[in-house]
């Protein structure tokens, strides 16, 4: 048995990189897909609406853990060759992020009155101009708290990647705890690190909300 030491702290810091990397991948790919889903769900085309709704309902009905398992164990079987862990896990987080943000933003877009689209159309603006200049800024303001709320969830949920062997923050904590027999210390530290990342996000969200509301 060994004592918790400085090298363990470094280990946690390295593992934290994976936590951030997973969140970054999820956002980099999930945000554009989520926006596309939100637009599809609010579009005039029944086909697009149905497809997007079905996808959102389906994925939201599957636990994130199940998604991770499917992409990590299932996809290699389907495609017949190994898929790198980062790709499999990244894909699972991307689709998870896309459907939840898609649904949150769909709500934001629908909360903007239809008359706002109409006012833009009557001034001769294109659909894209109406969305970018008139609808999106208002929808973003409405959806901001829920969006940041999801971001916090996402960062905490990267811990689930530990089950498929990715050594991110939670998994690193588990390993150190097993080595040092100091679970209270180690897990408190891990929890404190998660909190240190997430708390500023919610604070920032509140500041942003206040500022956006002020400019109105």
């Amino acid at each position: 048995m060994r004592q918790f030491s400085f090298s363990d702290l470094l280990f946690l810091a390295t593992a934290l990189e994976w936590t951030f990397l997973m969140a970054a991948i999820a956002l980099a790919f999930g945000v554009p897909v989520g926006l596309a889903l939100a637009l599809a769900r609010t579009s005039g085309s029944a086909v697009l609406r149905t497809v997007a709704t079905a996808l959102i309902e389906l994925i939201q009905g599957i636990p994130l853990l199940g998604l991770l398992m499917f992409f990590y164990f299932g996809i290699p079987v389907l495609v017949g060759k190994d898929v790198p862990t980062v790709v499999a896990v990244g894909a699972a987080y991307t689709i998870y992020t896309a459907v939840f943000l898609g649904d949150i933003w769909r709500g934001g877009i629908q909360a903007v009155r239809q008359a706002q689209w109409e006012a833009g159309a009557c001034l001769g603006l294109s659909w894209l101009q109406q969305f970018v200049h008139i609808i999106a800024p208002q929808a973003f303001r409405i959806a901001l708290p829920a969006t940041v709320g999801f971001l916090v969830q996402l960062i905490k949920n990267t811990s689930l990647a530990s089950v498929v062997g990715l050594v991110e923050l939670a998994r690193a904590g588990q390993m150190i705890s097993a080595g040092t027999f100091q679970p209270l210390l180690v897990y408190t530290l891990v929890a404190a690190i998660y909190f240190t990342i997430c708390f500023p996000l919610t604070t920032w969200s509140r500041t942003l909300e206040a500022r956006l509301n002020g400019a109105r």
Partner: peptide
């Protein structure tokens, strides 16, 4: 769109853009 640029319409409920200044409301289009 070209047709609508030639026809102004004013609604009962104003339908101004709430997130923009008056100047921006007027000059956007």
């Amino acid at each position: 769109r070209q047709m609508r640029q030639k026809v102004g319409i004013v609604f009962q409920a104003f339908n101004l853009f709430p997130h923009m200044t008056i100047e921006k409301n007027v000059t956007l289009a």
